[in-house]
């Protein structure tokens, strides 16, 4: 079985450590906040200028001046801080964020990532994604392994315009958890019930398969 959106978020949440400052991108990465392991406290950074993002508001707390980077209304948790956009990206670019989780259209064996533009279709802009991938040491990309037509999104070389060059080391897909080392994907874990053969078939970039590939458990 491929991983559900929730399982992907759950798997990434296991990478959280107590005291981490974390930036979660829009979409599945946002769901990671729902699976923070017990006994671990993390501070979520929202790049519009909020460190310490809380829950969505109750009706009575709804406030137009309080939004997250996805433009959703949000609250600040106890211990939060709020600042301007230059300060926010100083944190990001300066490497102060411990973990960044974001989505992508494609990644490749050189650690390149494409996530912001599909030529010919509409260009919406990169928002903060280019700053995030350029500044973070520790990035996890969450994405589907292949397109609906079966075309692999884990490539020898990204075909779409890049968001960042050589900056990705870790990828979680709906089929597997992989790391990028020395110009290849290394298969580290597979989704429950997904065969190594299926992952091999759906990975276009060079893939190293260790002798033992553990199954994820949920």
């Amino acid at each position: 079985m491929t991983l559900s959106r929730e399982q992907m978020a759950q798997r990434v949440a296991r990478e959280l450590q107590d005291g981490y400052y974390v930036n979660l991108g829009i979409g599945i990465p946002t769901l990671v906040a729902n699976y923070v392991p017990e006994g671990i406290d993390v501070m979520l950074q929202s790049e519009n200028g909020l460190l310490g993002m809380g829950e969505f508001p109750a009706e009575a707390e709804l406030d137009a001046d309080m939004i997250n980077a996805g433009k959703q209304t949000v609250t600040a948790r106890p211990g939060a801080s709020i600042f301007d956009s230059a300060e926010s990206f100083a944190m990001i670019r300066g490497g102060h964020v411990d973990l960044t989780v974001l989505g992508a259209f494609e990644v490749d064996v050189e650690g390149n990532i494409a996530s912001w533009m599909i030529p010919g279709k509409l260009i919406k802009g990169m928002g903060g994604a280019m700053d995030l991938v350029a500044g973070a040491e520790n990035i996890i990309v969450i994405m589907t392994h292949a397109a609906k037509d079966g075309a692999s999104k884990l490539l020898p070389r990204c075909s779409l315009p890049l968001t960042g060059a050589g900056c990705i080391r870790r990828v979680l897909t709906d089929l597997a958890y992989l790391e990028i080392e020395n110009g290849a994907f290394v298969l580290k874990e597979r989704a429950p019930g997904v065969s190594v053969e299926e992952i091999v078939a759906k990975t276009a970039g060079k893939l190293i398969v260790p002798e033992h590939v553990p199954e994820m458990t949920f």
Binding site: E47, S85, S88, R93, G127
Partner: peptide
Amino acid sequence: PQGTLAERLRAGGAGIPAFYTATGY
């Protein structure tokens, strides 16, 4: 890029004509 945009404005106001950033390389 959002962080570059913020910094371009800050730099403009602070009298810094240009700056280097890894963002977008």
